[in-house]
Amino acid sequence: MNVEKLMKMAGAVRTGGKGSMRRKKKAVHKTTTTDDKRLQSTLKRIGVNAIPAIEEVNIFKDDVVIQFINPKVQASIAANTWVVSGSPQTKKLQDILPGIINQLGPDNLDNLRKLAEQFQKQVPTAGAEATATQEEDDDDVPQLVGGETFEAAAEEGQAAK
């Protein structure tokens, strides 16, 4: 394009004056500060207390670990509320596990092993364990005899108690 043509086009553009639309100033909302203030006031109402000297927090979720380095930790035991604030890093479990095991120590390592054994016992497998849980569930329902209704069986069960 020609420079003269550009100058002519620029002169034709009207940015103000009579009959032109007014620009409305777009208000900039500071939602982060108001949200933070609201959150802090709610936490104060719950009664959280800061817990000092925590260097690291790890949250385990499936095969991912959310790790906070030098977080601000607040807790309210009565409300069963824990607040961890800081910058999180997402890592894979196999990458972080050797470092965590070293931090646990021998006593906590035994506790971790017991938890793993309990977890393995809780997961039902096909076979005898699955039928045992099914039998436990059947205890709640009264056994019916031919020609008997649920209502009659329930009344007999209450009468026996």
Rank of each mutant, 00 (worst) to 15 (best):
V64R: 15
A128L: 10
E55M: 03
L93V: 10
R45P: 14
V64A: 13
D110I: 10
K91N: 10
R45W: 12
K44L: 07
N111T: 10
K72T: 15
A79I: 11
T81W: 03
S76F: 12
P124A: 00
E117A: 13
A79H: 09
F119I: 06
D63C: 04
T81F: 08
V73F: 11
N108T: 12
N70S: 15
P142A: 06
A50C: 04
L115P: 03
I54A: 03
E136C: 03
P106K: 14
L115Q: 14
L97S: 14
L43I: 04
V65F: 06
I46W: 05
T131Y: 14
E55I: 09
E136A: 14
F60W: 12
L104E: 07
A116N: 08
A79Q: 13
N58C: 10
R45G: 14
A78I: 07
F119C: 05
D63R: 05
F68A: 01
Q94I: 05
A79T: 08
D139W: 14
D107N: 09
L39A: 03
I100D: 03
Q118C: 02
S76R: 06
A50N: 11
D107A: 14
A79W: 01
V84S: 01
K72V: 12
I51T: 02
Q74I: 03
A78K: 11
K91V: 04
P52I: 07
L43Y: 00
K114G: 03
G105H: 09
F60Y: 12
A75E: 12
R38M: 12
K92S: 08
A128F: 04
Q74S: 12
V73K: 01
L97Y: 14
K72E: 11
E55C: 04
Q40E: 11
A53S: 07
K91P: 07
G105Y: 01
N70K: 05
K121I: 04
S87P: 04
A132I: 11
A50G: 00
I46P: 00
Q89L: 12
I59W: 10
N49W: 11
N58K: 09
E129T: 02
A126T: 14
L112P: 02
E135T: 09
L43P: 00
E129F: 01
P142F: 06
G99R: 02
L43N: 00
A53C: 04
D62F: 07
E55W: 06
P98N: 00
Q134E: 13
E136L: 11
K61E: 12
K44M: 15
Q120K: 13
L39M: 05
I100W: 00
Q74V: 08
A75H: 08
K91M: 05
N58D: 13
S87L: 08
T131F: 15
P88C: 03
Q94L: 08
K61G: 08
Q94H: 07
A79Y: 03
V57G: 00
G105F: 08
V65N: 02
